[in-house]
Amino acid sequence: MDRRTMATMTTTPVTVLNKDSMLIVKEQDVVPFRNRVKEYATKIGMGLVNQTKLITAASELVRNMLRYGGGGNTLIEVVSKGRENGIRLTFSDKGPGIANIEMAMKDGFTTGKSLGLGLPGTKRLVSEFDIKSKPGEGTTVMIIKWKNG
């Protein structure tokens, strides 16, 4: 109940036109997932630059999910808000969660061996970005890329 209210507060109300989900458990799932996202983005007529940004963002998040959350579930949705169409991606894992989201969103911060660009970089690539995490329970990241956004 609590989480539900939070979600509606931080994300824009949209209409879901089409949805698809995909389980990510191993590294080899990443490429098919990216291709699936590309399929949907092409279907709504998203331009090449925005497509590339969206797929790169998806790639970052799916990699995070595998590395830190031990894999999880992804949701690909075609959404619309007014006249604007877009793709919404949701990544949920049941990993250890992120203790300090504020820190995790900072450029250059990492608990792993990466460059620490993943989350803040991803946020720059998409139109909307929302992250929820509870230590011990998992992390859910939601992004939207509008067709012309």
Binding site: V49, Q51, T52, K53, T56, E60, L117, G121, R124, L125
Partner: peptide, 14 residues
């Protein structure tokens, strides 16, 4: 490098 990749890399911060 494809133009869209270059744009994305810079926005990503790489």
């Amino acid at each position: 490098m494809q133009p869209a990749v270059a744009i994305t890399l810079i926005e990503l911060g790489l």
